[in-house]
């Protein structure tokens, strides 16, 4: 019974928060002076970028914990977080391009933050491909954990490399361009909260799926052994 309530609470809360944030983006946040309505992409775009990176961080933590402790739960956490994080980074990339076109006249510019999102996206995809190509369950989980660690560690290095490489270009997204008013900040924070809860709900669902798969595999193994 209690499990059922908590099982529904998280998805319901995430839907509510998502709708609230959506409402704030369109009806509460003021129209930005220089960029107009397109600037409204900003709220969810930044929120998904944040959560996407956070998902990667969780994968990193899960990977380290798995190597140290060896408990399957950590492996499941790393796997689920990477899959959910990939969805968020994909959103960041696509909407970033949709924002870049009207704002700067091109779908893609090699702006550092956009570029690092692309790098993260490629890393997530490589991680998923590795997950898909593994046979030995335990050993495969260790491979994925090592990759999760190495991949996360290269993100800050990539960030510095890309930023130095692009310093010649103007910092288009820096704070000076867009004056953030208090209502804008509130909207951004609510969006951030909504995306975090959404991430948690999806993560939980993905972890449950993996646990059920484990249970099925155990059942089948027992069947075979009996």
């Amino acid at each position: 019974m209690r499990d059922k309530i908590t099982g529904w609470a998280l998805p319901a809360l995430s839907v509510l928060l998502f709708l609230a944030a959506l409402g704030m983006v369109f009806f509460y946040a003021p129209r930005e002076a220089t960029m107009g309505d397109v600037q409204r992409i900003f709220y969810f775009h930044v929120a998904s970028a944040w959560v996407g990176f956070f998902g990667f961080f969780v994968t990193f933590c899960g990977s380290v914990a798995y190597l140290l402790r060896g408990a399957r739960t950590w492996d499941i956490l790393a796997l689920a977080s990477a899959e959910v994080g990939l969805a968020f980074i994909t959103m960041t990339l696509l909407t970033g391009m949709l924002w870049a076109k009207p704002a700067w006249g091109a779908y893609w510019i090699w702006e550092p933050r956009l570029t690092i999102s692309a790098v993260q996206w490629v890393l997530y995809v490589a991680y998923s491909m590795l997950r898909g190509a593994l046979d030995a369950p335990e050993r495969g989980a260790r491979f994925a954990a090592v990759y999760g660690i190495v991949a996360f560690v290269t993100v800050p290095l990539s960030w510095f490399a890309i930023r130095w490489w692009r310093t010649i270009h103007p910092q288009l997204l820096s704070g000076g361009e867009m004056a953030i008013t208090p209502p804008m900040l509130t909207t951004l924070l609510v969006s951030l909260a909504a995306f975090t809860v959404l991430y948690a709900a999806l993560l939980r669902a993905r972890m449950q799926l993996e646990r059920e798969r484990d249970a099925l595999a155990a059942l089948r193994a027992a069947q075979e052994g009996a």
């Binding site: 309505d37 775009h45 959103m91 696509l94 909407t95 949709l98 009207p102």
Partner: peptide, 12 residues
């Protein structure tokens, strides 16, 4: 420009 906005929130 609003088209881009709608497309973006469609993706979201």
């Amino acid at each position: 420009t609003n088209l881009y906005l709608w497309a973006a929130y469609g993706i979201f």
